[in-house]
Lab assay of single mutants.
Amino acid sequence: KCTICLSMLEDGEDVRRLPCMHLFHQLCVDQWLAMSKKCPICR
């Protein structure tokens, strides 16, 4: 589950894993990281 948009991560979707190993939709986390340089879970 992407904790930014709260939707399930589905096969075939573009996802991004951060160095902390948390996984998000690529678009969601890219937009998040443009505003904050910290993982939305770890922050």
Rank of each mutant, 00 (worst) to 15 (best):
K1N: 09
K1G: 04
K1I: 10
K1R: 07
K1D: 07
K1Q: 08
C2N: 02
C2A: 00
C2D: 05
C2Q: 05
C2S: 02
C2I: 00
C2M: 01
T3G: 10
T3C: 09
T3S: 10
T3V: 05
T3H: 15
I4T: 01
I4N: 05
C5M: 02
C5V: 00
C5W: 00
C5D: 00
C5Q: 00
C5K: 03
L6M: 09
L6W: 09
S7P: 00
M8V: 11
M8E: 12
M8Q: 14
M8K: 13
L9P: 03
L9W: 01
L9T: 04
L9M: 14
L9D: 09
L9F: 15
L9I: 11
E10P: 04
E10Y: 05
E10D: 13
D11I: 08
D11H: 12
D11M: 05
D11E: 12
D11P: 06
G12Q: 07
G12H: 07
G12F: 05
G12R: 07
E13H: 05
E13A: 11
E13G: 12
D14V: 08
D14G: 14
D14A: 12
D14P: 09
V15P: 00
R16H: 10
R16N: 07
R16T: 12
R17D: 04
R17G: 07
R17A: 08
R17W: 06
R17V: 10
P19M: 02
P19A: 07
P19Y: 06
C20Q: 01
C20I: 04
C20F: 00
C20Y: 15
C20K: 01
M21Q: 14
M21S: 14
M21T: 11
M21W: 05
H22M: 03
L23E: 14
L23D: 14
L23N: 07
L23G: 11
F24V: 10
F24G: 15
F24Q: 03
H25K: 00
H25C: 04
H25D: 01
H25I: 00
Q26W: 05
Q26F: 04
Q26C: 07
Q26S: 12
Q26D: 09
L27R: 15
L27F: 08
L27W: 09
L27M: 13
L27H: 15
L27V: 13
C28P: 01
C28K: 01
C28A: 01
C28V: 00
V29C: 10
V29T: 07
V29A: 12
V29F: 09
V29G: 07
Q31I: 05
Q31R: 13
Q31E: 08
Q31A: 10
W32C: 06
W32T: 11
W32H: 08
W32E: 12
W32Q: 13
W32R: 09
W32Y: 07
W32A: 13
L33K: 06
L33Y: 06
L33P: 06
A34G: 09
A34I: 09
M35I: 05
M35G: 11
M35H: 06
M35C: 13
M35N: 09
M35P: 09
S36Y: 11
K37P: 04
K37C: 02
K37E: 14
K38I: 07
K38P: 12
K38W: 13
C39F: 02
C39L: 02
C39S: 05
C39H: 06
C39W: 02
P40A: 02
P40D: 01
I41G: 13
I41Q: 15
C42F: 02
C42L: 02
C42Q: 04
R43D: 15
R43I: 12
R43K: 15
